[in-house]
């Protein structure tokens, strides 16, 4: 398949994270290729955010290595990675307008200044928030703020984009429209995305591949390729089927006994 020939963007080798005595991430190995959308699924507290902290360069791993575009992170010579990060909360500067928030991120990036204006206009129009260009973040709805946060992550030409449950605080209707926009924009820009979520259906709808983690400390339980072509429909029965299939698989590793089994026991 074409997948194997694509260059590697983000690679983890034998990655582990410990806090003092307690192990949050036991061992992770994965290789994410250019243009891939990879979802991360795992039970609460298994170490997903800890993993993101490491692959975003915010925190050095306790063991193992991270490679971004084949260059090692966390060595003395390594440059910090160029990434976009959509946090669970928007993390915009409330005292800067939407445009200023985007410009501050652009100013710290390598994007040439002459192209900023056009880029900002384009991304805002793709995300349907052009009319809020000069608005204060406090005057926007949760969904609109999260769109700005997505715009900021995409604008700076990142090697890859991390998203930590970015839609979990939004109402379902807003989340749906954002999911749809997200698939469109990621395909169009060929973005490489790591997307942490608790919603299995969301993962199935969005991702090319799902890394299913074990209970904490996290290991990779299964590298699951989503067997659905695009475009996808969130209400498609096949998405529900794949979702049910995954739920079946994770029962044991996530420590959830199935009803029949528990009644027998």
């Amino acid at each position: 398949m074409t997948q194997e020939t694509r260059p590697s963007v983000l690679k983890a080798v034998n990655l582990g994270v410990t806090y003092g005595q307690s192990e949050a991430v036991a061992q992770l190995d994965f290789d994410i290729k250019r243009g891939e959308f990879v979802a991360i699924l795992g039970p609460s507290g298994c170490g997903k955010s800890s993993m993101l902290n490491v692959i975003s360069g915010l925190r050095a791993p306790s063991k193992g290595r991270v490679l971004v575009e084949d260059e090692e992170l966390f060595t003395a010579q390594s440059k910090p990675p160029r990434l976009g990060y959509v946090f669970q909360s928007h993390r915009l500067l409330p005292w800067r307008t939407v445009r200023q928030n985007l410009e501050i991120a652009l100013a710290a990036s390598q994007v040439p200044r002459g192209t900023w204006e056009a880029r900002i206009d384009e991304i805002l129009s793709i995300l349907h928030i052009s009319q809020f260009k000069d608005a204060w973040p406090m005057r926007l709805s949760g969904g609109q703020r999260q769109r700005v946060s997505i715009a900021r992550a995409l604008l700076i030409d990142p090697s890859y984009i991390l998203m930590d449950e970015p839609l979990s605080t939004l109402d379902e209707v807003t989340a749906r429209s954002l999911r749809q926009e997200l698939t469109g924009i990621c395909q169009r820009t060929n973005a490489t995305v790591v997307f942490v979520t608790h919603s299995i259906r969301e993962a199935v709808y969005l991702a090319d591949r799902i890394l299913i983690l074990t209970k904490g400390p996290a290991r990779i339980f299964e590298d699951y390729k989503v067997p659905l072509e695009r475009p996808r429909d969130y209400d498609d029965a096949r998405i529900a089927e794949v979702e049910a299939d995954i739920i079946r698989r994770v029962q044991a590793p996530w420590g959830l006994a199935m009803r029949e089994e528990s009644s027998v026991a």
């Binding site: 975003s56 915010l58 990434l83 990060y85 946090f87 501050i104 710290a108 990036s109 700076i156």
Partner: peptide, 11 residues
């Protein structure tokens, strides 16, 4: 939170 954001975006 904003500190982390600033670090990620290399401000």
């Amino acid at each position: 939170d904003l500190d982390e954001m600033a670090q990620v975006y290399h401000l």
